[in-house]
C-alpha cells in the first residue's frame, strides 16, 4: 500500500514539474529575448535592421558603440535657457542619482525600522501601526499634489533636494528590515553595553555589520531601479536628464541627430552594463534577501 502511494506521488510530482518546467522554459526564454534582441540589434546596420527585425547581424557594426557617444545629446531648459547634455553628463547624473538617492532612501528606512524593532519607547507601537496603515490604507494617486508639494519645498527640479528627501520611510522595505532587525539576538547589544559601549556603537559596530548582506541587497536593487528609471527626470527633474531618460527622449529625436535604432539600442546596452554587472556579482545575496513576512508584529 505504502509502495503504491509512493509510486503515485512520484508520478504526480514528475507530471507537475514537467508541465511547470515547460511553462517556465518558454516564459524564461521570452524574458531573455529583449536582452538578446537589444544586444544583437545594437550591432546591426540601418539596412540590416530594416531587412530582418529578429535575425543575427550580417555584419557586426561595433561602430554603433562609439558613434552613440558622439551623437547622443539631449536638450533641456533650465532657468529659461537651453542646455545640451552629452552622454557623459547624463551618465554622471545617473550615477549621482543612483548612488546617493539609494543611500538616503535606505538610510531613512533603516533608522526608523531599527528603532521600532529594537527599542521600547512610547511611539514604537504607533510607528509600527502607521506602517501597516500606510501599506493597507494608502491615499491613492496624488501625483498632482505631490508635484505641488515638491514645488513648495523646493524639491522640484532641484537635484540635491530630490536626493536628500527620498520620501516616507514606511512600506515593504520597512517591514522587511523590521523583521531582519528583530531576528538579531539582543545578547549582541547587551555585550557591547557591558563593555561600556553606547547605542551608536551597537548600531554601527554590531547591527550594521550583521545586516550588511540584507542592506547591500536592498541598496543594489534600489540602485538598479534608479539607474534604469526614466520617470524621475520626466516627472520631478526635467532639467537633470539621466541616461535612461536621455535614451528615452533620444529614441523619439534620433532622426534629428541622424541616429538609427541600432545606435539607440547600443546606448541602452551601455546603460544596462552597470545593472547587469552589479546583479551578476551579488545575485545570490540579492535573491536570498528578498523575504516578506506577514503584517503582524
Amino acid at each position: 500500500m505504502k509502495q503504491h502511494v509512493k509510486k503515485k506521488r512520484i508520478k504526480e510530482a514528475k507530471a507537475l514539474f514537467i508541465v511547470v518546467g515547460i511553462i517556465f522554459l518558454i516564459h524564461g526564454l521570452s524574458l531573455l529575448l529583449p536582452f538578446v534582441w537589444m544586444i544583437m540589434t545594437s550591432f546591426k546596420g540601418r539596412l540590416d535592421y530594416a531587412d530582418s527585425f529578429l535575425g543575427l547581424p550580417t555584419t557586426w557594426r561595433f561602430e554603433n558603440y562609439t558613434s552613440i557617444f558622439e551623437i547622443l545629446k539631449v536638450e533641456v531648459i533650465r532657468n529659461g535657457q537651453f542646455y545640451e547634455y552629452n552622454i557623459f553628463g547624463m551618465l554622471g547624473n545617473s550615477l549621482i542619482l543612483a548612488v546617493f538617492k539609494s543611500f538616503f532612501s535606505l538610510l531613512s528606512v533603516v533608522l526608523c525600522a531599527y528603532c521600532v524593532a529594537k527599542y521600547d519607547f512610547k511611539l514604537r507601537k504607533l510607528l509600527f501601526n502607521i506602517n501597516i496603515f500606510v501599506m493597507v490604507i494608502p491615499i491613492v494617486g496624488s501625483l498632482a499634489t505631490t508635484l505641488t508639494v515638491y514645488r513648495q519645498f523646493g524639491i522640484y527640479n532641484n537635484f540635491l533636494m530630490y536626493i536628500i528627501f527620498p520620501g516616507s520611510p514606511f512600506g515593504f522595505n520597512f517591514l522587511l528590515l523590521y523583521g531582519a532587525f528583530k531576528a538579531i539576538p539582543n545578547s549582541y547589544s547587551e555585550a557591547v553595553f557591558i563593555d561600556g559601549g553606547g547605542h551608536l556603537t551597537v548600531f554601527l559596530r554590531v547591527i550594521i555589520p550583521v545586516m550588511l548582506p540584507t542592506l547591500s541587497a536592498l541598496y543594489i536593487l534600489s540602485f538598479i531601479g534608479l539607474w534604469n528609471d526614466y520617470s524621475a527626470s520626466l516627472i520631478y527633474l526635467p532639467s537633470v536628464p539621466t541616461l535612461a531618460y536621455g535614451l528615452y527622449l533620444f529614441q523619439y529625436d534620433s532622426a534629428k541627430y541622424g541616429a538609427s535604432l541600432p545606435e539607440v539600442l547600443a546606448g541602452f546596452a551601455i546603460c544596462s552594463i552597470p545593472s547587469v554587472v552589479l546583479f551578476c556579482s551579488f545575485q545570490k545575496v540579492i535573491t536570498q534577501s528578498l523575504t516578506v513576512g506577514g503584517l503582524k508584529e
Partner: peptide, 18 residues
Amino acid sequence: RVVYMLPNMVSGVVITLL
C-alpha cells in the same frame, strides 16, 4: 532565478520597444 530578475536589469523602455 537569474533569468527572472533580468527584466529588472534592463530599462523598461527597451522591453516595451521590443
